[in-house]
Each structure stands twice: as structure tokens, then as C-alpha cells.
Nucleic acid binder design. Sequence first.
RNA 1: GCCGAUGUGGCUCAGGGGUAGAGCAGCUGAUUCGUAAUCAGCAGGUCGGCGGUUCGAAUCCGCCCAUCGGCUCCA
Length: 636
Amino acid sequence: MIYIRLKDGSQREYPEGISLLQVAESISPKMAKFAVAAVFNGQVTDLNATVQEDGELDILNFEDERARIVYRHSSSHIMAQAVKRLWPKTKFAIGPAIDKGFYYDFDTEHTFTPEDFILIEKEMESIIKSDYPFVRQELSREEALQFFADRHEDYKVELIQDLPEDAVIGLYQQGEFVDLCKGPHVSSTGKLKAVKIMSLAGAYWRGSENNKMLQRIYATSFPKQAMLDDYLNKLEEAKKRDHRKLGKELGLFVLLDEGPGFPFFLPKGMVLRNELEQYWRDQHQKAGYQEIRTPIILNTELWHRSGHWDHYKDNMYFTKIDEEDYAVKPMNCPGGIMVYKQNLHSYRELPIRTGEMGLVHRHEMSGVLHGLMRVRAFTQDDAHIFMLPEQIIDEINGVMNLIDLFYKQFGFSYHVELSTRPENSMGSQEVWDMATDALKQALEEKSMPYKINEGDGAFYGPKIDFHLQDSLDRTWQCGTIQLDFQMPEKFDLTYIGEDGEKHRPVMIHRVIYGSMERFIGILIEHFAGAFPTWLAPVQVRVLPITERQHDYTETIIARLRDEGIRVEVDKRSEKIGYKIREGQLQKIPYLLVIGDKEIEANAVAVRHRKEGDLGAQGLDEFIAMIKTEIANKMIK
RNA sequence: GCCGAUGUGGCUCAGGGGUAGAGCAGCUGAUUCGUAAUCAGCAGGUCGGCGGUUCGAAUCCGCCCAUCGGCUCCA
């Protein structure tokens, strides 16, 4: 007999060798029905696993993230089984669970098409209906290699070869299909209820462009059809917030074939952009920054000295002036450094914080361009901080605080990653370790949770990256703080210390928005185009009901303009409902409806895009209200 | 750059070897109206580009370009 203690603290007695699923059934048939996986003694485990020892048990249903991973992982095996049945010659690579579903990478002569989705889904449904149990077997490394080699599963063989010599290899079988897998899995294929193939993509084996490109099928699964429907609806809703669609509808920017990756900002987009820049200047002035501007084209010699030639030239554009070689800047740092070098600096001056709205150009590969999120010309809200070594932590903290202030202003939540030394980089390992430790220390002092991104740093130093999400939960790096001991060396930067000698300053490269373009993209999706009034390209639109109100409307517009409010008028001879509809679709914060009643009362009828008809107000009252909203940068 | 899909008036989309179609937007006229679409008329496209097949190509084929979803890469 063994004793199993449950999450609620109660303890039950079972015969040795009982399966966890049987335990779940003994507690509650309903619990067993919705059970996906179990946690036994802290390990996520198959429900089909049997237990021989006392332990603590927690039964997980789909609500638990760990269980969802198991559920989707099992789903990927079922999809693989379906593909194997339909195209028996297919070779199988990997099939993990991902955030909202799963994928499997296949190598096959057959080129999958969207028409195949239905076939695969049908086959999956048939496998689900058969309710095959997922059966775990374990083989030695040798046996497993033999097993997959016999089946010509080259990718599986390669995977096993990379496992340690003494590894016990897990295999899972459902019906006729066997796959290499450490598990765990759901108890049987019948646990799946709703599956949907989502999309098709190419993906390199093991993520390296030197390897063969496989065909990846993305899909998702849920334990209830209603949950799948709900998920698909949410996806549709999210697509309506796509900044590329809203950018067009709201007249903010365009991307044309004439300049792939080079966005055109339209008048309304410029208003938004200028407001963001104004806020940026205000806050940086308060935080002790000075603003500079450096040239876009600079002599190639400078780029050799900075290391960009060696590490970044594939991403740069070049030109010639009077037979001399020049490059279009992909980064602002050399310019900022040249400014620092214009004077001798005393240790008393440091830290020196120089900011620059710097327009950079980068030759990004054609396949990676994505609306405003990934472009070839963008403005970085850059700054370079030159400081004493003992000021590093304080300065990093200062930048982290500034980033937090900005992101909170827009109501963004963000996550942080620490990127370490990449392969193609400059400087000694010692200096890199020092810089990386400094960033770690700053993060830990702030008890900021972070993920480590090995090998993802800049070529001159490690960095802390701040990531924001778009409407489809894809994350984009916006803010970054990069610590650099290399450029000061390369450019022989100095300050005069207390001792009267020359010393080497340390540099921080940092951005808050990241790039104006990307940040605006994120902002559009975050607010679904309904920007807070302080950012809204048009803050008020005045809608006269008939021509009789045109004169009065003019006086209102003049007054609002005078108060610095961005106002438009719709004098077309359309019905008021039509004008309101258009104003709503343009997501204008306030529509002022003007009829005879308003003229008589010397008032305006206020309609807010979210709150609807707010009734009539005196014009002064309305102006006071909207000005408060703008001044406080309120989000509503 | 790689894999797959897509490209038709300003926008959203239909059509598909026999000389381009709708709705919205636009323009003109009528209407003067109270919180998400008033009616009528008019105008607008060498169907992404270049080649090829064909008596004939928007439609079939090839190459290129751009976009979308991924991979790789990155602010």
C-alpha cells in the first residue's frame, strides 16, 4: 500500500502500481474527465504513469499552463500521426507546444497547401475518435538509435545522438505511431476535442540557415469547441487592431512599393509623432540630458574606426562624395562620440548625457520587413551617456527608471531580457564579463525579473532589452540599455580625473521608445487607434446638424483653435448619424454636435468616442475638461 | 536571404482564355435632417512589372518586384 497526499492536504491509501488517472477517478470522475496531466512529487507526469511510492499529487486540467503544454504537445504527436498516414514517406523533425498551440516540422517531397489542412484535420479527428492511449516506453540509447535508423527517421537519429551516452530514451506510442519524446502526454488521443490547423511556414532544421528548410505546420487545440471558437474570434478582433490596417484607415502613414521599408508619415501620423517627441524632450530635459543632432552620412574611415565596418557592413548603405567613400549611419554612436571629443572633459562634468533623435538606415533582409515594426529607415530616440566607472550602476538605474516612466505613461506592460556576448564581437572576455555583471547587478538591485538571451548582445557590449507586445502578442524589442567599454577605447575617449591624469570613461548607449516607427506601431495596436486625447491627431470634430449652424460652428472652431486644441469640422450636407459614424470610425475622442438648441443655449453637445452622448455643456466647461485631460495625458 | 501564399479603380473584394464588375469613398444635384450609413446621377482601372504560349492573356507559363504568415536576423 502507498499513501498519496492531495493538494487539499487529505491523504488516501492505494495499492502499489495504480495509475494516476485511476487515482483521479477515485477522487472524482469529473476531475478525471477534465484531467490533462498530473504533478507527482513536483514532477509533471503522465496520467497513465503508475506509482510505486508515497507522494504528493496534484491533478492538472487545461486551465493550468503546464497542462496546456502537455495537451498541445500531445496534439502535435496526433498531427504527426495524421501526416504520416496521409504522406507515409514524411520524415519527422520536432513538434513542440508553443504559446497558443503547437507546430511540427516535416521533411517531405509533398508540398503542403492550405487545402491539405482539411485532410489533416479530418485524419486527426479520426485518430481522436479512436481514443488510442499514449503509451510510454523506454529504450537504451543504442536501441533507440537502431529503432529510428530502421525507420529512416534521420532527424530523430540526430536528436538521439546529441543526448548523453547514458540517457534513457523515451518513446511514446499512440495507435500505430511512435515518436521520440520525453513526454509527458495526455492519457489518450480522445482527450482532444477541437483542433485547427492555423498556418504553414518554412523553418530551418535546428534554426540554422545552413540547414535544410523543413515545412512547419502551425496548429492549435482546445478541450472544448467553444474555447477554440473564442480563440479564433479573439484572433479576428486582434487583426482589426493591426497597425498596418489602422495606419491606412486613420491616415497615419503609408508604405509604398517605391520605398520598401521606408515609411511615409502622413499629416495625422506626424501629429502623433511630434507629440511623442515633445514628451520625450520634456522628460529628457528633466532627467538631465542635452540634445544634439549628428549627420546621416559620414566618412567610411569613421566606420572602420568604430568597428561597424568589421561587424555591421552587411547592414549598411554606402555612397561616394567627390570620389571619397561615405556610409549612411546605421547607428548614432560614432556621431555622439565625435561630439564628446570636441572638448576636454573633467571628471566633475560626468556623467554627460547626450540625446539625439537620430535617423538611421539599415539594410534589413527583404523577408523581415513588417509594417512600422521592422523598417529600413528609422529614428532612434538615442542617447549616449559618458561616465565614470563608479557611476555605472546609478546611470543604468536612471535609464531603467526613465523607461519605466515612459512605458507606464502609455499603460504598457513589458518584459526584460539580458543579452550577452555574441560570436562576432570585439573586446576581451574580461571586459565583457565586467559589463555583463554590471547590468545583472542593476537588474537584481531593482529585483526586475529577466530572461537571459545568450549571444544576443551588440558587437560592442551586452545589453538589457525591453520588449513590448503587439496585438497578436508578438513581442518587439523597444527600449535597450547597452553598456560599452569598447568604443571609448577605439575612439580614445578621455576625461581628466581628480589626479590630473587622463582616464577612460565608460559609455551607455540607450533608447527609450527604441525607434519612433516601431513604438508608433505598438502604440497604434495597443490603443486600437483610439489614442489618448493628448496624442490624438484630431482631438475634436465639430458636427453642425444643418447649414443654419455653420456660423456658430465657426466661432466654436476659432475658440478651440485659440486654446490649442486640434479641431476639425464636418460641414457636408449629410445626416448627423452619418457624420457621427465617420467620426467614430476615425476614433476622434470628442464629437461636438451643434444644432439649434446648442446655439440657443450657447452650448455644445458632447459625444465621447467611448462614453457616447454626454449631453450639452457650456463651451468653457468643455474646454476646461478637455484641457485637463490633455495636460494630464489621461487615458480614456 | 529562405519556405509558402497573395497582388483587379483611393479602400474592401467578386470574376477568370473572347476586348473589365460590385459596395464604400470621390464628384454633381436634390435633401436641412438630433447621436454609427438620405436619395439619384456621374466619373474612375493598359487587372503589380517584364517576357512567353495563343488568332486572342487580367485569366495559362517563366522571371522579377511588393505584400502577408513563418524561419533566420533585428530597434
